[in-house]
Design a protein around this nucleic acid. Structure first.
Length: 256
DNA sequence: ACAGATGTTGATGT
DNA sequence: TACATCAACATCTG
């Protein structure tokens, strides 16, 4: 296989949500991958790694980034030609990025600041409890990629509902039993999400609207699927958050 | 039509 | 320390 570049505007000197325009060195590093074979594709949390014979790419999809094959999609930022097939990095909001790096820098770049991967290395209840020390909210802790790598707003919201834990619980206040529930909630949420990926319902919902495939996310006012109570919504940790006030009891009496 | 919200996350400010 | 806010941007909803 070989790779060939077409656009370089998403190429950045480092993993960053900040678009930058002047990256001639990074663009040159990408061009230098032309003709190199792809050896492996790796993932740690939300970071992706593309390992070439010589050199590598670290990538983050941001909010709207995606890889597509076939015809050039809208908002194509980068095109790689592998054989006769084009693979496109499309990213409407341009928070995603592609960062060339040296081969021996790929693993450090993928793992820097990252906790264990939520899908590949989900800690057991005890280890989870240790990682969740502190008084900050459970939701903030779970969104912290250094605590657990790979969960974003949706999966945290859904996993907390599955576990029956209020997002505003202090992270360090969970009992071992609650950590076991949380672990199972995360595992089941990710397993279900992966199973649904084949149908692309989540992606379609988020990018094109349509039926909401989630249990509580985006469902304020709807009945909880478990107890029938009305789902509530609030902004926590600066992110939209939904939960069932009955299944996920609040840590303080003044919070719903 | 327009205001507001949206899957990310690092930098700033209080 | 721990928060909220903002900044990048395009698109969709109410």
């Amino acid at each position: 296989m070989s790779a060939w570049t077409r656009f370089a505007c998403a190429i950045r000197p480092s993993l960053s949500t900040r678009p930058s325009t002047a990256t001639p060195a990074a663009a040159a590093a990408l061009v230098a991958l032309t003709g190199r074979r792809v050896i492996a594709v790796e993932r740690v949390g939300k970071r992706l790694g593309l390992r070439f014979e010589r050199g590598a790419l670290v990538m983050h999809l941001g909010m709207t980034g995606r890889w597509e094959t076939g015809a050039e999609p809208a908002h194509a930022r980068l095109g790689l030609r592998v054989g006769e097939r084009w693979t496109w990095f499309a990213d409407a909001r341009r928070f995603g990025c592609v960062v060339p790096c040296a081969l021996d820098a790929l693993q450090p770049a993928l793992h820097a600041g990252m906790g264990p991967d939520a899908l590949a290395a989900l800690p057991d209840a005890e280890a989870l409890r240790e990682r969740l020390s502190g008084r900050r909210s459970l939701k903030v802790a779970l969104l912290d990629q250094a605590v657990l790598a790979g969960l974003g707003n949706i999966h945290v919201v859904e996993a907390l509902w599955r576990a029956g834990l209020h997002p505003n619980r202090a992270a360090g206040s969970l009992s071992l039993r609650e950590c076991a529930r949380l672990r199972q909630g995360i595992a089941e949420q990710l397993a279900d999400a992966l199973a649904q990926l084949g149908e692309e319902q989540e992606l379609v919902y988020l990018t094109q609207g349509g039926r909401n495939p989630f249990t509580v996310y985006g469902r304020e006012g709807a009945r909880c699927a478990r107890c029938g109570e009305a789902i509530v919504k609030a902004t926590l940790a600066a992110r939209s958050t939904w939960w069932c006030p009955s299944c996920q009891p609040a840590p303080y009496s003044n919070l719903t």
